[in-house]
Amino acid sequence: MSVCIDITGLRPERVTVVPSPLAELGMALHALSEPGHHPGLQGWVTGVTARLDPYLADRMCEADFLWRTTFSDLFLPYAGLPGRDALPGATLTEELDLLDKLTDEQFVNAATEFMCTPGYDTPGLDVLADPAQHRRALDLAASRGPRQVHFTRRLLDDPPGVRAWLRQFLRDCDEAFFADVWARVSHPLAADARHKTDLLRRKGLAEALTSVSSAVSLDEGAALISVDKMAHGRTATADGGLLLIPTSLGWPHLMVLHRYGWQPVLHYPVGSPELASPPSVEQLTLRITALSHPVRMRICRLLARSAHTTSEMAQSLGMTAPEISRHLGVLKKASLITTRRRGRYVLHQLDVTVVARLGSDFLEGLLR
């Protein structure tokens, strides 16, 4: 599974790496709402939560599904502006002004993304003008919960009022805690953007994308960027550009904006504990499938204690050598065992490090 970006005709100068204060504020809100996703930020979350004004904390709950359930494209508004080449602002105020430039239809469609509505990468439905879509939006919201219904009803009845509420809420968050965060992270993010831009100029897009994440790859022949995720999606730069936006608060999330008609955006974490080559979704699937069989679990238990030959395992488990070999082939394909030769014997052993990381790898793959 992957999200793909068709970059046919994309000129090098239309690829831009730039930090975004509004996107970083969105990640800050997400971390506060889902601290379990971000174990490295637990201390910061505890400190902010302890001194947060109760009134602001209550308002934070009114629409937290915009940054908790999903990461709303409202935090990347420049991607939706005409021309598909707008850039983030240098300050939060500038980016809130860009948010104001989205049409009501764009704003509502992006704000109702939490409903898991179909057609994210196809032309959106006009829920404001179509009564049937209006009713459907409320039905979908009802399946998510009463707060979602209340927010959706406000949104459909009074888009300008919700826009004003959101702008003021974000400004209050900036005053309460985010200004300090941005003062701390903006310089490292700018340095990373300069580094990626230098790679683009000197070594090309493929090298720059590899430095973003090993989950991102470029097929230059097909002019296609693929992002390894547990999701399907497709978009194209067309006559617009491509934005790469770094975040200091985002790990393990690697997000791709592929909304129909919007400029594609890669929102990637920097300074993360990500390994040099984290397993792909396909590798994770192979490993989980390999460990789901009871015989292979018994083999793993043997190989976790010490190295064994195929004949030893066959004798210990009461099976034939060919049967053991077939199971070993599955485990080896999943990179769960290592093999070494000692004289005329071939010894197999469980790679305990890989198995130990499987839980965190799986979680990272889900959250990526």
Score class of each variant (00 low, 15 high):
A193L: 14
G83E: 14
A23V: 01
L303I: 11
P294L: 12
G80M: 07
L128F: 03
L200D: 15
V45K: 06
L347Q: 06
V295R: 11
H293W: 12
P294N: 08
P82R: 09
L76A: 14
P131V: 10
S143A: 12
H134R: 14
K196P: 12
L189Y: 08
R202T: 15
A164P: 00
V17P: 02
R342Y: 11
N109Y: 10
R163S: 06
A111R: 06
L199S: 15
S306F: 09
L99Y: 04
N109W: 07
W44G: 00
A28N: 03
R341T: 06
Q263D: 02
M230D: 12
F65R: 08
P146Q: 01
A90K: 07
A164F: 06
P146L: 11
A314C: 01
L189W: 10
A191K: 08
L155M: 04
G329D: 07
L209D: 03
V355Y: 10
F178H: 13
R341I: 04
R84I: 04
V256L: 01
G40W: 04
H37Q: 01
K229I: 07
A90M: 01
L52K: 08
P264Q: 10
V346G: 00
K229C: 06
V354I: 13
L350P: 05
P160A: 11
T338W: 04
L102Y: 09
K333F: 04
G36T: 04
P252W: 03
Y78N: 02
L41T: 03
L257Y: 04
D361I: 10
I7W: 04
G26E: 07
Y78K: 09
K203L: 12
A110E: 14
L243H: 08
L244A: 08
V3Y: 05
E312F: 01
Q42Y: 02
L209C: 07
A356Q: 15
A206T: 02
I324C: 03
V330C: 08
D97S: 06
Q168M: 12
M230Q: 09
M115F: 07
L76T: 07
L328H: 08
Y345W: 09
E62W: 06
Q133R: 12
A356R: 15
H187P: 00
D158Y: 05
H232T: 02
V15T: 13
L254A: 04
K332W: 10
Q168C: 08
A137P: 11
V127W: 11
V127A: 13
L363S: 14
W262M: 12
D139F: 01
G89W: 00
N109A: 15
Q349F: 08
A57M: 00
P35F: 00
L209T: 02
L366V: 13
Q168R: 14
G161V: 03
